[in-house]
């Protein structure tokens, strides 16, 4: 039984890793652009006009959480999303 539960949990972790996506709330952004500074894939871009960060799409996100950790306003989260 323990084996079965372990396997189910592991499978869940694997699914979670696969479906984690950036959840961004631009209303909270103060334009410090730390996310842009740290993203190793280049998913963030500075919007100089409105002084906020733009999320350019989830393609290639490695779920490293750098932008989540560096955001001082907690405007960025990584959540399991299926679409």
């Amino acid at each position: 039984m323990a084996v079965k539960e372990f396997l189910i949990e592991e499978w869940g972790n694997l699914r979670e890793l696969r479906y984690l996506q950036i959840d961004y709330n631009p209303a909270r952004c103060i334009g410090c652009w730390q996310c842009y500074e740290v993203c190793p894939i280049g998913l963030w871009a500075p919007d100089f006009e409105h002084r906020v960060a733009k999320f350019t799409g989830p393609k290639g996100c490695v779920a490293c959480r750098a932008c989540v950790l560096q955001c001082p306003e907690e405007a960025i989260h990584l959540r399991v999303q299926k679409n």
Binding site: V38, P40, C64, R65, A66, L69, Q70
Partner: peptide, 8 residues
């Protein structure tokens, strides 16, 4: 840059 995933 690559330590930003764990260094606040």
């Amino acid at each position: 840059q690559l330590c930003a995933n764990g260094v606040d």
